[in-house]
């Protein structure tokens, strides 16, 4: 809101700018002493004159107030600004502490490095502190895994035919491994999750199957990159067909080679000892069926898909004894 006339005059009776007034306060001189234009006071009477009229005193008061506020601004302005910033920070902190989600978001970025540093500096203390939690988790996980294994063995034993029992007994006699241990080994969870059949020279994907509900559209790229990695490993480490498996986490990719094609089977958990041999037999059988088409492969994979499906799709079929268990006992091959 703006005012005019007498009110304005009251606010700035000297007619000087704010900068001039502040300069006067800073130097301790009046504007007249600084050589500024004459004011009513300079023209009419001196500042040191002891006797003043009441009107003159009233006129001087606003001047003093302004000078005082300017002085305050100079002395405390910076501090006031700083206090305002600090108040805002305190308010924000109060909000973050009160709001758990905001607090978590603020602390999260530094938590990882803080824990890492603490582990580096005082490993034993950290182990002591975490042991009750981690120990319990490990016990629970192992118990669960053992329970799954027991269930798997039970199912397998129930499903085993007399012939399989006799075969296991014979294997036990030949190898000296107890029947129970052989049953345990056979009972390890195992599943083929994906099969890639790849043209050996070009890396082109011939056929692909997966247990996933929606097959990936990038399997051809994966097949080619897998071939590139295989070529790289053979070139760097020497030899041919030496890259036989890639392991990552609890999954592994088992590779088996034919003359013109090779197969990559992505397996979860533990690969049975005779799996590679089964895979090799299938690659051999596939190549035998489509030998000429493979030898003169022109990029049209549709001519090979039927043969590929017949040979490799059974790997993806779960054991009926454990149907519904994705990582259950593999297949009846």
């Amino acid at each position: 809101m703006s005012t005019s006339g007498p009110a304005q005059k009251r606010e700035n009776p000297t007619g000087r700018s704010a900068a001039e007034r502040q300069a006067a306060v800073r130097t301790g001189k009046s504007i007249e002493q600084q050589g500024g234009p004459p004011t009513r006071r300079a023209a009419g009477q001196r500042r040191t004159t002891p006797k003043r009229t009441d009107a003159r005193q009233v006129a001087d008061e606003p001047d003093a107030e302004e000078a005082l506020s300017a002085l305050q601004e100079i002395l405390f302005g910076t501090d006031r600004d700083r206090i305002q910033v600090l108040s805002a920070d305190v308010e924000q902190l109060r909000h973050q502490i009160g709001d758990r989600a905001a607090l978590a978001a603020a602390v999260a970025p530094i938590l990882g490095s803080a824990i890492r540093r603490q582990i580096q500096e005082s490993r034993d203390e950290m182990i002591d502190a975490l042991y009750p939690i981690i120990g319990q988790l490990v016990v629970r996980a192992v118990t669960e895994a053992m329970r799954d294994l027991a269930r798997s063995i039970d199912a397998r034993l129930q499903a085993a035919t007399d012939f399989q029992r006799i075969r296991r007994r014979v294997r036990s006699l030949v190898t000296g491994v107890p029947v129970g241990e052989l049953a345990l080994r056979d009972g390890f969870p195992f599943a083929v999750q994906e099969v890639y059949l790849i043209h050996r020279e070009s890396g082109l994907l011939l056929w692909h199957a997966t247990r996933a509900p929606e097959p990936s559209t990038d399997s051809d790229l994966v097949g080619s990159m897998l071939t590139a990695i295989r070529e790289f490993a053979e070139q760097v480490l020497g030899g041919k067909d030496n890259l036989q498996q890639l392991r990552f986490g609890n999954r592994e990719l088992v590779l088996e080679f034919g003359r013109y094609a090779y197969v990559g089977a992505l397996i979860a958990v533990v690969t049975p000892s005779d799996f590679r041999w089964k895979l090799h037999r299938r690659v051999y059988a596939f190549e035998k069926k489509v030998y000429e088409r493979l030898r003169r492969y022109d990029g049209d994979a549709s001519t090979l898909s039927d043969a590929a499906r017949r040979e490799f799709e059974p790997f993806l079929v779960a054991d009926p004894a454990l149907s519904g268990n994705q990582t259950g006992q593999g297949n009846g091959l």
Binding site: H199, S202, L204, E231, F232, Q235, G299
Partner: peptide, 12 residues
């Protein structure tokens, strides 16, 4: 340059 040749195998 050593490995490039093996990457070119089977290229149409």
């Amino acid at each position: 340059s050593q490995i490039r040749g093996s990457y070119m195998r089977g290229a149409a």
